[in-house]
Amino acid sequence: MATTLEVQKRETKPHSNITSIRNAGRIPGVIYGYKADNVSVSVDSLTFIKAVRDNGRNSVFSVSIDGAKLNVLLHDYQVDPLKGDIEHIDLLAVNMSEEVEANVSVNLVGESKGVKLGGVLQQVLYEITVTATPDKLPETIDLDITDLDVGDTIAVSDIPKNGDYEVITDVEEVIATVAAPRVADEPETTEAAEPEAIHGADDAE
């Protein structure tokens, strides 16, 4: 069941209205997609952050616009690079029976045997793209790396098949690898020079 998210329609003019919305502790946004025609809205900042934190980035939220109820996903958002505040959100209205694309975080589980031998785990891919109906979208995908040895890699193709969603990221993309442990450089050795006194003695003969 979708979690209810309270939104308010907003005027798009004048531009200064955006500033006043943010100053009031709300986030401006837009709803578009299935049965929605680019509706400008705003949502309480603290309520929105709590809803996403409690339910997940890929959760379905129920909103009401002009008496009509819509199911929406958080499709995109913009963050102030200095303050870290969410400046704008895009809410995608969805048909619950049609598949959509979404990015899902990859969570590495376990300690690889390569790391136990001194190797260094390097994760290079943190998100993959999947398709699923909105109610089947996973929040994260756990990937067991216990058997990953030094020099081994784990790729998108190693993600177990799941009937709820389909992974559409290139199967050859590497998710993580265990690099060999770094060997400290041995200090260079140089032959000790003979004392000058020895040369001097030879010259005197």
Rank of each mutant, 00 (worst) to 15 (best):
I89D: 01
S112Q: 06
Q122E: 15
V130Y: 06
S105A: 15
S112V: 00
L148H: 06
G200V: 10
E172V: 05
A201Y: 12
P138C: 13
T189E: 07
V167F: 10
A180P: 06
L92C: 11
G84A: 02
A93M: 05
V79P: 00
E173A: 04
T131G: 05
E166P: 05
N107D: 08
A24L: 06
E188F: 07
V60K: 00
K50T: 14
L82Q: 06
L108M: 10
Y126V: 02
D170L: 03
I49A: 13
D203C: 07
D202A: 10
R53W: 11
K136E: 01
D76Y: 09
F61V: 01
Y77P: 07
L117E: 14
I65T: 00
Y77N: 14
A155S: 15
A68T: 15
I49S: 03
D90V: 08
K83I: 04
A93S: 15
I27R: 00
I49L: 15
V167L: 05
L108W: 02
A193Y: 09
D149G: 04
S157M: 03
D164M: 02
A176M: 07
I86V: 15
G67F: 07
E11Q: 10
D80A: 04
L92Q: 13
I128V: 14
V79N: 00
H75W: 12
S16R: 10
E173V: 12
V183R: 09
N162S: 01
D37Q: 15
G119N: 04
Q78I: 04
T129Y: 12
S40F: 15
D54R: 15
Y165F: 14
D158M: 03
D185S: 09
H75Y: 13
V39H: 12
D66K: 14
G119E: 09
P187I: 02
I86M: 03
G25I: 12
L121T: 14
S40L: 12
E139S: 05
D76R: 01
I49T: 15
K35I: 07
V30T: 13
I128G: 08
S20N: 13
S62L: 06
G110A: 08
N107Q: 13
M1I: 04
K161Q: 06
D149V: 04
S157F: 03
R57E: 14
K83F: 05
A201I: 09
D85F: 11
I65K: 05
T19D: 11
P181C: 01
